[in-house]
Amino acid sequence: MPVRRGHVAPQNTFLDTIIRKFEGQSRKFIIANARVENCAVIYCNDGFCELCGYSRAEVMQRPCTCDFLHGPRTQRRAAAQIAQALLGAEERKVEIAFYRKDGSCFLCLVDVVPVKNEDGAVIMFILNFEVVMEKDMVGSPAHDTNHRGPPTSWLAPGRAKTFRLKLPALLALTARESSVRSGGAGGAGAPGAVVVDVDLTPAAPSSESLALDEVTAMDNHVAGLGPAEERRALVGPGSPPRSAPGQLPSPRAHSLNPDASGSSCSLARTRSRESCASVRRASSADDIEAMRAGVLPPPPRHASTGAMHPLRSGLLNSTSDSDLVRYRTISKIPQITLNFVDLKGDPFLASPTSDREIIAPKIKERTHNVTEKVTQVLSLGADVLPEYKLQAPRIHRWTILHYSPFKAVWDWLILLLVIYTAVFTPYSAAFLLKETEEGPPATECGYACQPLAVVDLIVDIMFIVDILINFRTTYVNANEEVVSHPGRIAVHYFKGWFLIDMVAAIPFDLLI
């Protein structure tokens, strides 16, 4: 008679799926529990143990900040960024110097990925580790590398530091407007667009060049630039800015003055950032001319202004700041037409079709709590990747769950009947059967004279019903998954307890 339990259901295979997918890609990662103190490590794979030199037993239950890997060259700011990422709910990448158990130093890129439950609360953290440099290539500990984003994938490793954006290309926007319009339909740009040429040739750093990471940081200074100062900065030398009595002219307006920039070969870094931020506020060169004239017309309804409409929906549905990093990277690809469009465009503009998908598509409701890094690593669709929660398995109709209350009560009843059979069957065979043979035949009273025979008949009927119930009862397979398919249940029961239950259900007393 089957006594099969499996009270692990309803099970959740999400954690096993993450481990299996990460292991298949030869990654070095740990999984931490966000619900406990210090976000203790609950799993670390073999790749991480080989990377740091510690065994799994030495890593388990330690804080996922990996303070046991810190050393003299470990930056405090990087460690603080990892700790801050564990307090938030967004994906974050941090470069930090770690030390192995043998004392060797290596520069590592740590990717902190939160995993949320159905309520939107962070319950786990996945920390992925990628070695960037070994100890002989690690720089000085005073050099802070965590304020910069990861290198873009479309640049060669040897040319990542030679990417320079020439400031004269930004200063000569109005001069290039006529050349853009003359391109017409034969050019790649839309009317009114501004073409910015980027020099990728390796050259020595000069005062006129600005690194790509500095251009990325310009967006942080746009908020500090007032509207009046932006307007004066875009007017140009024809209309000098008016300053109040006793007030000095704005240095932001002076930063885009061609006369002032041409007199000296070098520009201050602050002026460069502010000038680029001011130019980015204009949607095209037409807006710059309109600002000089004193009238700013409404933005025209053409394809170039609607190019950012799908980007707005993608940004609203993005799951991490990696989408913004990807957008900034692609927006700086050289030799393309940049349409400086305000994100607050007309909502009635139709979304044009684009061959290049900048932001990841909208994630469906079932995966809105899973970050983009987890979705990318697992390579699963929205119909396959579940949320991290207890999910009731989908069972067929008329199927009994093996952990249901009805099955528990039924098993206790069958257990009592088995005990009765084990006690009274030998007793009936030894004593009652002998008395029946010696006594007179009682054929007239039937079952009324033999109450134990009636009980034995009921017990046999219950055993037959138990066999039928076992054909529709779920079970737990070797992978700790609840199986509810009727065919698989029948095959599993035939290979197991079916023969024993059938022999126990045969009414031998009635056959004798």
Rank of each mutant, 00 (worst) to 15 (best):
Gly6Asn: 15
Pro10Gly: 13
Lys21Phe: 04
Ser26Cys: 07
Ile30Asn: 01
Ile30Asp: 01
Asn33Met: 06
Arg35Leu: 06
Val36His: 08
Cys39Pro: 13
Val41Trp: 01
Ile42Met: 07
Ile42Thr: 01
Gly47Asp: 05
Phe48His: 01
Glu50Cys: 06
Glu50Arg: 13
Leu51Cys: 03
Cys52Arg: 01
Glu58Ile: 01
Glu58Gln: 12
Asp67Ala: 08
Leu69Asn: 01
Gly71Pro: 01
Gln84Arg: 15
Leu87Trp: 13
Ile96Cys: 06
Lys101Cys: 01
Phe106Ser: 01
Leu107Met: 07
Asn117Thr: 10
Glu118Ile: 06
Met124Arg: 03
Phe125Glu: 01
Asn128Lys: 10
Asn128Thr: 08
Val131Glu: 15
Val138Glu: 15
Ala142Cys: 15
Asp144Phe: 10
Pro150Asp: 09
Pro151Tyr: 13
Pro151Asn: 11
Ala160Ile: 14
Ala160Gly: 12
Lys161Gln: 13
Leu167Lys: 05
Ala172Ser: 09
Arg176His: 06
Glu177Asn: 13
Glu177Trp: 10
Val180Tyr: 15
Ser182Arg: 14
Gly184Asn: 14
Ala188His: 12
Ala188Trp: 01
Ala190Phe: 03
Ala193Leu: 01
Val194Glu: 05
Leu200Cys: 13
Ser206Tyr: 05
Ala211Ser: 13
Thr216Cys: 03
Ala217Thr: 06
Asn220Pro: 13
Glu230Asn: 05
Ser239Trp: 04
Arg242Ser: 04
Gly246Pro: 12
Arg252Trp: 05
Ala253Ser: 11
His254Ala: 12
Asp259Ala: 07
Asp259Trp: 14
Asp259Pro: 05
Ser263Phe: 08
Ser266Phe: 07
Leu267Asp: 12
Ser275Met: 12
Cys276Val: 09
Ser278Ile: 14
Ala282Ser: 11
Ile288Ser: 11
Arg292His: 14
Ala293Thr: 05
Gly294Arg: 05
Leu296Tyr: 05
Pro299His: 07
Ser304Glu: 09
Met308Ile: 12
Arg312Met: 05
Asp321Lys: 09
Arg328His: 12
Thr329Ile: 06
Ile333Val: 14
Ile336Gly: 15
Asn339Val: 01
Val341Asp: 12
Asp346Pro: 14
Ser351Glu: 14
Ser351Ala: 08
His368Tyr: 14
Val370Trp: 11
Val374Asp: 05
Leu378Asp: 01
Ser379Ala: 05
Gly381Ala: 14
